[in-house]
Structures are given as structure tokens and as C-alpha cells.
């Protein structure tokens, strides 16, 4: 009996999608759509823009799915496509250069024992820090790739990532144990 898409591994689904399988690609979209949309929102995109870019990313992925050879996960591959599309969209709008420098409004500290999720913690970061941390740890970009994508010096990118992680560490401190493991964190 033929396997149903829902029972298949991502690599199998991608191979069938490369041969034109819409149902199989649909299953990939169902599996990874939320993660891609969440990444774009974490990078700073408004929900409607994030959904729009995520759809574009999946359409691009469908056209290029034959290039996906299973090195790394399908989710990571689509996230990179989505991140690039989002950066291109932003650079077209030429918004971020002016906006990136803005620091966020300081928010209240987290009380010990309070449940903190990543999205909340990211609110403490400036836009450029959030973008750099999300590209690095969410989309798997290297520091040089981020520097090239954002047209920023490599050292600046490294310090944005470090500062962003320091802020996240401080925000997540109540829910991270001494080994860096989450005590009770919602993703």
C-alpha cells in the first residue's frame, strides 16, 4: 500500500514535490509553515508581511525543490529562502537603515519564576539586534552572510549578535538553569 504524505519523511516529500507532487509539497507547507512564519515575525516582520513573504518563500521552494538534496533539514532550507526574501523586501523599501538604530522602549524586568517565551524576550532587543540574532540562530546565516545581506561591517554584526544574546540571556535568566537548559520556556 502506498505511503500517505503524512507518513513520509521530508526528504521523500521533497523528492516527490520535485516531480510535481502538489499534495506532497502541501504536506511540507503544513509541517514547516508555522516555523517559517514565526521566524519572519521574530525577525521583525508584521504578521501580514510575514505571511506574505512566507508564501513567496514556499512558492520559490516549490520551483527550486529539485535543488534540495537533503543536506540539512527542509525547514532550515526554506527558512533561509524566507529570510533572504524578507531582507530583499526590506531593502527594496529602504526602511531599515533609518529604523535599525532605534532602541526599543525599555520594558519591565522579568520576575523570577515568570514564564517567558522567546518572542517576549526578543522584544528587549533593538530591531537590528533582533534581525542579526534571528538570522544567525533562526535562519542559520553565518556572520559574514549577515554582514553581506545587511551591508554592515562584520564586526558590527558580531557585536549586534553578542549584545542581542546578552539581552536574551538576561531576559531568559529566570527560566534557564545553570546548564543553559530551559526550566519552563514556551517556544
Amino acid at each position: 500500500m502506498a505511503k500517505r504524505p503524512i507518513d513520509m519523511h521530508d526528504v521523500e516529500l521533497a523528492a516527490l514535490a520535485a516531480a510535481g507532487g502538489r499534495a506532497e509539497f502541501g504536506e511540507l507547507v503544513r509541517r514547516h509553515g508555522s516555523a517559517v512564519r514565526a521566524l519572519l515575525r521574530r525577525m521583525g516582520a508584521q504578521p501580514s508581511l510575514a505571511d506574505d513573504v512566507a508564501q513567496d518563500a514556499f512558492l520559490t521552494a516549490f520551483q527550486k525543490v529539485g535543488e534540495f538534496r537533503g543536506q540539512g533539514t527542509f525547514g532550515a532550507w526554506v527558512k533561509r529562502i524566507a529570510a533572504r526574501l524578507y531582507l530583499r523586501r526590506r531593502s527594496k523599501e529602504a526602511r531599515y537603515v533609518a529604523e535599525l538604530e532605534g532602541e526599543p522602549e525599555p520594558s519591565g524586568g522579568v520576575q523570577a519564576g515568570e514564564l517567558v517565551d522567546l518572542d517576549e524576550a526578543l522584544q528587549a532587543l533593538s530591531e537590528v539586534e533582533r534581525l542579526c540574532v534571528s538570522l544567525c540562530h533562526g535562519a542559520g546565516f553565518s556572520h559574514p552572510e549577515i554582514a553581506q545581506s545587511l551591508d554592515l561591517p562584520l564586526g558590527t554584526v558580531k557585536s549586534h549578535v553578542k549584545r542581542g544574546l546578552d539581552k536574551l540571556r538576561a531576559r531568559l535568566a529566570p527560566v534557564v538553569d545553570q546548564h543553559g537548559r530551559p526550566a519552563d520556556v514556551r517556544a
Binding site: G26, V29, A38, V176
Partner: peptide, 23 residues
Amino acid sequence: FIERLYARAPQMADADLFAAGVA
């Protein structure tokens, strides 16, 4: 740890709607 948090995005309520939009 941060990478795991990024990878653990919850399934969104309108995930099926999104998939239908792509289709």
C-alpha cells in the same frame, strides 16, 4: 539553547489556512 527555542515554533492556529493559501 537559543537555536532550540527558534526551532520550537508552535503550530499556528491558522496553519491549514496558510497551507491552503500557498496551494
